[in-house]
Every structure is written in C-alpha cells, then in structure tokens.
Amino acid sequence: MSVASIPILAAMNSGEIFRQALPYVLLGVALIVALDLAVSFVYRGNPSPRSKWNWWDVLVYLGTLGSVGVLGFTSLAAVVRDGVLGGWSLFVHMFGAGAFTAVLPLLALSWAHANRAELRPAGGQSSPPKFCGISKLMFWLILACGFVVTMTMLVSMLPIFGSDGQHTLLDIHRYSGLAVVVAAVLHLYGVAAQQVGLR
C-alpha cells in the first residue's frame, strides 16, 4: 500500500488533513466513552460523595457547553460537508466565539478552585469535591485549549502575521478547537457519570 492510497497522508493541505482526521478523532472519543462506560458498569462501586452545584455553576456550565456546542457544530459540520468553514456557518461560528470568549474567564474564575489537583486529601476538608478526576482534567484542558483557540483568532486579526503565519495560526486554531470540543464532550460525560452514580 502506497502512502498516496491513504487519504489522510495523501492530503496536500492542512485543512484537508484535518478534514480526513476528524472522523477518526470523533470515533476515538466515542470509543473512549464506550470503553469507560463498560468498565464502569463492570467494576461499579459506591459513588464518591460530591458537592452540589449552585445556580451559578449551572449557568456557567450551560454557557460553556452551549458556546462550545455552537462552535463545534458550525465548524465541524461545515468542514465535513464543504471542506471549509464559510458563509452563514462562519457567521454563526463567529458569534459563538464571542460567547465563548465571554464565558471562558467566568468559567476559569468560578471553577478553577474546585478543579485544582489534590495529591492527598486536604486536612480538615469539610466538603467533598465537586468533580471527578476526568472532569477536572478536562476542565483544565478546556481552559488551556480555549485560551489557545481564542488567542489564535485574536492574534490573526492583527496585521502581524502574513499568509504563512495565518495558516499556522489557523492550523493551531483547528486542532485546539477540536481539543476543546473533545474535552467538553468528555467533561460532560464525566459530569453525567457523576450524576448517575458511576463516579
């Protein structure tokens, strides 16, 4: 089998490579979830005690999921369908980006403390943690990749980077955006698993 016969390797531009890679990534996420679910059901123990969410937590989380959902749907659907993001999809994507830019600092300020890593139980801790390990990890991933995905577009709006730089920024934007979507899906899965008592 030659390299040219493998579509993802034969793709000549980074946009096409991303398009070819996208189904595999989404399939990978689905497999991880399915595998974890299976393992969780087989080795199901007592769920850990969790602190309850307040209304602000819910609001910020819905805002994050909503904006990531809009961004993910408009971009990934357009890329799969047309190969490029343009027209009304790009327009809606742009407004989703505005919402995401607004909600990300709120998420950071509100949730960072609850998602900090603890190497051992803190002495004298009164309330149980809000999130399981996978959710914490995904939170920091959303935050870090969200920062990258937003900055790449903000920087590209400045007359600093030429076409080559713009292409690089766009590539970083693509993959960090995909990472945010994947992290948000896995975070949602972690939260859902907590809710049904799997964590």
Partner: peptide, 27 residues
C-alpha cells in the same frame, strides 16, 4: 471585540498561571 477578547484572555491566562504556579509549588 478585540479589546474585550484580549481582556478576557488575560483573565484566563492569569488563572492558568496562578494555578500552574500553585501546582508546581504543591508538587
């Protein structure tokens, strides 16, 4: 939007930096 975006990302960057420093110090 550009000004707002940079401000918002400044906040996110500070949070990330603060918890990164805290994490490293904890480690």
């Amino acid at each position: 939007f550009k000004y707002f975006g940079y401000g918002a990302m400044g906040v996110v960057a500070l949070v990330l930096l603060a918890y990164l420093v805290q994490g490293v110090a904890g480690l």
